[in-house]
């Protein structure tokens, strides 16, 4: 394992992602990626009494599916890195309680999937765990009641606002040598350019994504054209446009092979989801369904995934603070040969 100047970790023996699973709610299941999910739940309560328990149940179902797809049982997983948007990460806590896997609860807002993949890769790549799971979830109904308004409250959303995805993604990492691999990770620094609008989180997060991309490319010597897909999660349509513009100014041209999980998961026009999806279940579900599945069948050979998160709470926003944001980059490839330095 090697560490570069701006923090990028290069794995000398890259861990592989041996299995992945994604479960989503009804609205997500009506979106363009419907065919790629392992399950689409028509009942967003997942037969539970509260929305919080529903999200825990969603996480459990997704993680169990991923473990089963890997041909393993929960006892075979040495560590679980999981997170969600709820106060004290309760969905992850309740999932971990039932799964009985040694557990690290993470909070990185919508960037949590990249954070979980990074930490799971470091543990498996460094030899401290044989197998580790990275899981993130979000639920529209739990996020609404915690961050915004009661579900039945009649309000209008602005065009730049994003819809929290009901969904969960789970990936199982292992020391086994089988593609796709995680070749390197760039942990992000918190960036805050003074955006205070909770309905424009894409704009708040775009500079963080740009900062991490600059670090990644300067550490690795790679260029955007080295990738089949560069994917942020989840800036939404408004934030993605801002990233393209700021990255261009920083000398990184993303145009051709760039997309954003928040933009991909919904058909914003038909589904009236404004700027797109958000929440750690958004990038989690997109990476752990469409992206990794396309890699397994060889349609995509290399992906640079940049998970972006807005690290705010309603309390500090009411105190008129701006939104600090973070982005972590994870380089996933079907080949262990590292192109670049």
């Amino acid at each position: 394992m090697k560490r570069k100047k701006r923090g990028t970790i290069l794995f000398s023996s890259p861990p592989s992602i041996i299995a992945n699973a994604a479960v989503v709610g009804k609205t997500e299941g009506e979106g363009p990626l419907a065919a790629h999910f392992d399950a689409i739940c028509q009942d967003d309560r997942f037969c539970e009494k509260t929305w919080e328990k529903a999200e825990a149940s969603l996480q459990k179902q997704t993680l169990s599916t991923a473990i089963k797809k890997a041909g393993l049982s929960a006892d075979d997983i040495d560590m679980l890195f999981s997170g969600d948007l709820l106060n004290q990460c309760v969905a992850s806590g309740y999932c971990a309680r039932d799964m009985r896997i040694p557990f690290f609860g993470l909070y990185g807002a919508c960037s949590t999937m990249a954070e979980a993949l990074t930490l799971a890769a470091v543990m498996t790549g460094g030899g401290y765990a044989e197998r580790a799971a990275a899981v993130t979830s979000s639920h529209f109904c739990t996020a609404e009641r915690q961050f915004r308004f009661p579900l039945e409250y009649g309000g209008q959303r602005t065009p730049t606002s994003q819809r929290t995805v009901t969904g969960c993604g789970a990936a199982i990492l292992s020391r086994t040598r089988k593609p796709p691999y995680i070749l390197c990770c760039t942990p992000g620094r918190v960036v805050d350019l003074g955006i205070k609008d909770i309905n424009n989180m894409g704009a708040a997060m775009a500079p963080a994504a740009c900062d991490t991309l600059v670090s990644f490319f300067s550490d690795t010597g790679l260029s955007p054209s080295s990738f089949d897909l560069i994917l942020t999660g989840d800036l939404g349509a408004a934030g993605a446009d801002l990233l393209l513009e700021t990255a261009e100014r920083a000398g990184i041209s993303l145009r051709s092979n760039y997309d954003d999980c928040g933009r991909m998961i919904f058909d914003s026009r038909a589904q009236d989801t404004h700027s797109g999806g958000s929440g750690c279940g958004c990038s989690g579900a997109v990476i752990c369904s469409y992206v990794l599945n396309q890699m397994r069948i060889g349609k995509i050979a290399s992906v640079l995934f940049v998970g972006t998160g807005a690290l705010m709470s309603p309390t500090v926003l009411n105190q008129k603070e701006s939104i600090p944001c973070i982005a972590h980059a994870v380089y996933i490839s079907n080949s262990t040969a590292f192109k670049g330095g």
Binding site: P159, T160, I195, N200, A203, A238, D241, L242, E245, T246
Partner: peptide, 10 residues
Amino acid sequence: YQTLVKRFSK
């Protein structure tokens, strides 16, 4: 950046 955001936000 604030100017840019204004220009890009619908």
